[in-house]
Structure formats: C-alpha cells, structure tokens
C-alpha cells in the first residue's frame, strides 16, 4: 500500500510538471525559408571540317549541339619546303605568336566557325605525296566577376580526388 501511495504521489508530481511544460515553450517564434538553384551544363565536343580545292584547305570547326560556349584555335603545318598562307574572308581569324590562328567570336553549341583558308604554295612540279596537318583546340569560355568573357588556354583538367573540392 505504501508503494501505491508513493506511485500516486509521483504520478501527481509528474502531471503537474507536465502541465508547466507548455509555458516553458510559450515564446513567440516564427520562420521563413526559400531555396533555389540552377543546373550546370559542362563539356563540349568540336569537330574540324576540311575541304580541299585549288591547293587550298578550307578549314571550319563545328561545335556539337548542347556543347557549352567555347573559344577555338587552329594550327596547320607541313614540310618546311612548302609555304602555308593563311587568310579568311570574314576577318574572324587572327594569328597568335604561337603559330595558332584564333577565332574571335565565341562559338556556341551547334555553331560553325567561318572558314580559315590555308593555301599551299611553292609546290614543285615533281612533288610527290605530302600532308598538311591541321590541329584544332577548344577551351570553355571563362568569365570575370563582371561577366566579361575571356579565353584561358592554360586551363588544365583536374582528375584528382574531389573530396573537399577547392577548399
């Protein structure tokens, strides 16, 4: 019977304590929340197209549909006994100090550059088979903090461990 009395008293005390919980949490509070974001699309695929006529290679570079915007550069070379003369009617290509020709406009996915003409000169009459090799490169368009685009040809891909990113 004594145990029962203690139990009843403890139950009563617990009930009283529970009744006061409400007042302990009775502070005015509220909240507001929002979220948002965008999907990132990375990667590009570019393809060089060449047409040959009248000892001239007509070079154009196409960026595949869905590719991110890129800058394009092209280089052509052959045996030293031949001379290559570069020209373009649209005035979009300009020579760099490194032998590359740089396309001035940003090439969006699905677009093709204006052609770059490479004329092969000093061809001897007894010239045998020879090659003119064309190399093209693309780099994703970079933006400064003001949103102005620029090309960074020194970017290197990082296939290291992603843990922690660039922190």
């Amino acid at each position: 019977m004594k145990k029962k009395s203690i139990f009843v008293a403890a139950f009563a005390a617990a009930m009283v304590a529970a009744a006061s919980v409400g007042s302990a949490w009775a502070y005015f509070t509220t909240y507001a929340e929002a979220q948002g974001g965008y999907t990132i699309s990375l990667g590009d695929e570019t393809r060089v197209e060449e047409e040959f006529s009248d000892w001239t290679k007509h070079i154009a570079v196409t960026s595949a549909e869905g590719s991110e915007p890129t800058y394009i550069r092209v280089k052509a070379f052959t045996g030293s006994q031949y001379q290559l003369v570069f020209s373009d009617k649209a005035g979009k290509w300009s020579p760099g100090d490194d032998g590359y020709y740089y396309y001035g406009d940003i090439v969006e996915g699905g677009q093709t550059t204006e052609p770059l003409d490479v004329k092969i000169e000093n061809i001897p009459e007894d010239a045998g088979e020879f090659n003119v090799v064309v190399v093209h490169e693309s780099t994703p368009v970079q933006y400064d903090e003001a949103g102005e685009p620029y090309a960074d040809w020194s970017i290197k891909l990082d296939s290291g461990n992603m843990e922690g990113g660039a922190e």
Binding site: A32, E33, A34, Q35, G37, Y38, T39, I40, S41
Partner: peptide, 10 residues
C-alpha cells in the same frame, strides 16, 4: 556536368 547548385536560406 548536369548537377544543380542550390542555395537555401531559413
């Protein structure tokens, strides 16, 4: 590529 960045504020 193809991932979405999210910012959430509460």
């Amino acid at each position: 590529d193809g991932v979405k960045f999210c910012v959430e504020a509460r």
